[in-house]
Write a protein that binds this DNA or RNA. Structure first.
Lengths: 205, 205
DNA sequence: ATTCAATTAGATTAATCATTCTAGAATGGT
DNA sequence: ACCATTCTAGAATGATTAATCTAATTGAAT
């Protein structure tokens, strides 16, 4: 019934991720994406409504794959495993890891906000992560969840491991083996509940 | 002898920092900088050779002010104080803090590298920080400095505190009071020397 | 008062970008 | 064989950008 496509949405998404990973958001121009897949710029617009759309789709694909790894571990009450799971995930696909871990989503949409359905999917992913952190904290501790404890959990499980990875993602060198031990020692030494609130509470790390 | 300048280099630098802080690197166009100070674009080129030049000068000013706070504390062998010093520094000037802590320098120079003298000043600042970390580690421990221990120190003193600040810099809300305690607990619970190398060594945190 | 280099002022240029448009090619059902 | 549809292909468009250029001011030193 129709002509077969030479370039899929995934082709364009992968090219966009690689370009951002290598040269920053500004390097992912429509023409650069087209050049990378070897097609004309017009073909991108058969799959995506705009540049924001393809960047948002790329973000949802990349960040989504990370969410898919972390959320089940968090809901299972395994924060330490979740933190360590960042390492193999980053090793799987360096372009994807640089794209997701080295760029704030807001920086990708300086010019124009992504179209509504993609923006909603972004929000859904972020909400899923937040709920998973909350569930993990709730399981570890006991009572109501305080904002401070949520911030603490996000730091220990997500932001701190990323901070450990960042210097090695910024350089060309691979992630050294001691990164895993640094994460492990962090979780062994720093409690999830704050010191002022910790009396008689189950210890997480 | 000459006409008095209405716009100084600092005016343009401050505008560039504020624009990047508010809207990302892409928002700091030459025209946006000129508009913000209320002058013509041409005047910027009387102070700076190019866009990369003003961005590099802005980076050196912002990061330089942070280096000026941290390096003396590191050379004095006070890593904990250095880590905590990030908080008042960030509170002093939110635009500057967002500019320096939320953007990798490499992301500011996607298009063109900064002119040589400014690039050298950037390198000088980075080298100064590296030497200070090394001196601090050397003082804390005893023997030769291992790469792993340097990475560990940079994480505990610099990258981890930034990771604690980042979510609050990204939002509009002020940095909460518990940020300081998180840094303190991090330094209380995680050693500077790795576990495998720690036997009989002075504890830093 | 005159001079003159530094500066303001903003129009101009050339490049680049996202997006649209026109044209033709491929595919599978009729 | 033909048609409807989806795609490739890349030229055209209009906006925006960094950087340059010409001309008009300014104000302290002479």
């Amino acid at each position: 019934m129709v002509r077969t496509a030479r370039f899929s949405a995934e082709h364009f998404i992968d090219a966009a991720i690689a370009l951002v990973a290598e040269g920053g958001p500004g390097a992912a121009t429509m023409q650069a994406i087209a050049r990378r897949v070897g097609g004309p710029t017009g073909s991108i617009y058969h799959r995506f409504a705009s540049r924001s759309a393809i960047l948002a789709a790329a973000w949802n694909a990349g960040y989504g794959s990370l969410v898919q790894v972390l959320v089940p571990l968090l809901h299972a009450g395994r924060p330490r495993e979740a933190a360590l799971a960042l390492l193999p995930w980053a090793g799987e696909d360096r372009h994807r890891a640089r794209f997701v871990l080295l760029h704030e989503p807001v920086a990708l949409f300086e010019d124009a906000p992504p179209p509504e359905p993609l923006r909603q999917e972004m929000e859904r992913l972020e909400t899923g992560m937040d709920e998973a952190f909350g569930a993990c904290i709730g399981r570890v501790g006991g009572g109501a969840i305080r904002e401070e404890d949520l911030a603490r959990a996000k730091f220990l499980i997500f932001d701190a491991p990323i901070a450990i990875l960042r210097p090695h993602l910024l350089s060309e060198n691979p992630v050294p083996s001691f990164a895993g031990q640094m994460i492990a020692e962090l979780h062994a030494g720093v409690p999830f509940a704050s010191a002022s609130h910790r009396a008689g509470t189950t210890q997480a790390a």
